[in-house]
Amino acid sequence: MHLLPRFDYYEPRDVAEACKLLSQFKASAKVIAGGTDILVNMKKGLIAPEYLVGIGKIPGISEIEPVDGGVSIGSNLIIEKLVEFDLIKKKFAMLSKAASVLGSPLVRNRATIGGNIVNARPAADLPPALIAMGARVKLKSRRQEREISLDRFFKGPGVTVIRPGEVLTQIVIDGPPPFTGGDYIKLMHRRSLEIAIVAVASRITLDGPDGIVTDAKIILSSVAPRAVHAVRAEKALIGEKPTEKLFEHAAKIASNECRPIDDIRGSARYRCDMVEVLAKRTLRGAFVEAREQ
């Protein structure tokens, strides 16, 4: 049996208290939300924090709230709620879709959106969709609160800009402009309980139902140390009339742009080939959704 290393557990009543504890214990403390990552890593002996600060009982960070046409999501919201909530399903469908393929029902009912972000795994399911939608995160510490775009949040596997003493409290997504659509596809070995072989999130905005592409995001996941933009592919879309040919062209560029590695889930070559397939399919999906809006 794997045993957890010894640690002390705190359960602050509000974010301020959590920040205080974290700044007091510094690097020897860690936040625990759903625990689906951190407890696994502790059991494996990869990390051994002396203190765990549980944020589960803090009020006000587990809600989904509409704000100015967009949405603010509490970091402690469990992932299953992203699958279920009407607001997310209707307005931010690609997030809902990404959430629906994360882990299994058991995992989705414990794991939180904040944990999925801060954990910063290269194949995590929510960051690609969130980045494609231009999401920002709110980080609170004892002294300050800052808001930062997710695009600038991830540094590498398990590494983010979050500082010891900071708590991620909210994820903010602006309302999508008119004629915007998105899609997320995760290539998996089996149908559930999978880490992506590769995944792609795409979002496009048109200037009308039959108009040209005015904005485009293609986020590739599981092909680099963190989710990355297929920059040249995005550029290739902007200003163009959305056609099947254009999507194929952009997908090919995306495939050439990525630099994945071989690992036990798949070879680098296959991953690149699949980026092309998934980029094309997500662009198609995004286009259909964009026209419907």
């Binding site: 299994s104 089996r190 149908r191 559930s192 309980l193 999978e194 036990i264």
Partner: peptide, 11 residues
């Protein structure tokens, strides 16, 4: 059993 994959009920 995460990386040694037996079928889930969805498979």
């Amino acid at each position: 059993l995460g990386e040694y994959r037996i079928p889930t009920c969805l498979d």
